[in-house]
């Protein structure tokens, strides 16, 4: 089953093309790497999938559900941990998670139990009543991931989840994400740390100037004695796939 199916997706901002007719699919249970230079169209694609932005044309389906026509069902299936801290800096962590659970329709008891479970899982218990602005960078990243998981989505989108995180926490997050993936969650990961994508992802797509310029299994990228970073650089510098 396809967790994500994108067909001929187009998006422009004030006449400037951000996504130029891309197509790709992600199978259920995959750990998928979505790479590209800054401004290539990664976040625009993610925004179209999640509803933060509206696409001009094309189709996006999550587990067969159209994100425009059946937006309520589609959004329940998606969890997003964005690159930027798009969060209420003055709200305590527990409250933020609680609100988010409410937005997704979780009733009080279920919501509170889920929030406590996530606080425990992400080792945020002692910080639960602190305002987000008072947390360290690493803790903030954990909150962002916890928030994306509140409604237990099937499809998780992580837009640079380890940016600005120290090595120890990065490894911790990797272990946690691998655990989620082994439990059956489908994950789309973008990252500027190529070794992170190489370690975690089974399949990879590279977007450049709004077009998918390469897509395939990780093994296809690291063949011929080259590592992923070398292939990524050659592809994004226009040397072809």
């Amino acid at each position: 089953m396809k967790a994500l199916r994108i067909v001929d997706l187009k998006k422009s901002y004030d006449g400037k093309i951000a996504i130029d007719g891309i197509d790709f699919t992600i199978e259920k249970g995959e750990f998928f790497g979505f790479l590209g230079p800054n401004g290539a169209g990664k976040t625009s694609t993610i925004n179209c999938i999640t509803g933060i932005a509206t696409h001009d044309s094309g189709t996006i389906e999550v587990f067969g559900v159209d994100v425009k026509k059946e937006y309520r069902e589609a959004r329940k299936l998606i969890g997003l941990a964005p690159q930027e801290f798009n969060i209420d800096f003055f709200a305590p962590v527990r409250k933020t998670l609680n609100y988010m659970g409410g937005y997704f329709g979780l009733r009080k008891k279920e919501r509170e139990a889920r929030v406590e479970q996530l606080l425990h899982l992400m080792e945020l218990e002692e910080h639960a009543d602190k305002q987000f602005r008072h947390l360290s960078g690493g803790l903030k990243r954990r909150v962002m991931i916890a928030r994306s998981l509140v409604h237990d989505p099937e499809f998780l989108i992580l837009d640079e989840p380890t940016a600005g995180v120290d090595v120890h926490l990065r490894h911790e997050l990797w272990r946690y994400l691998e655990g989620l993936n082994s439990e059956g969650k489908t994950i789309l990961l973008t990252s500027h740390y190529i070794e992170e994508v190489e370690k975690l992802c089974g399949r990879i797509a590279i977007i450049n100037r709004g077009k998918i310029v390469a897509e395939g299994d990780k093994s296809e990228f690291v063949a011929e004695g080259k590592n992923l970073e070398e292939r990524y650089l050659s592809i994004t510098q226009g040397e072809g796939w």
Binding site: T50, Y71, R75, N86, I87, M100
Partner: peptide
Amino acid sequence: FVRHIEEVLVAPFS
């Protein structure tokens, strides 16, 4: 301004 409206935009709201 702080973009936490995105919490609402990604949720199943009409």
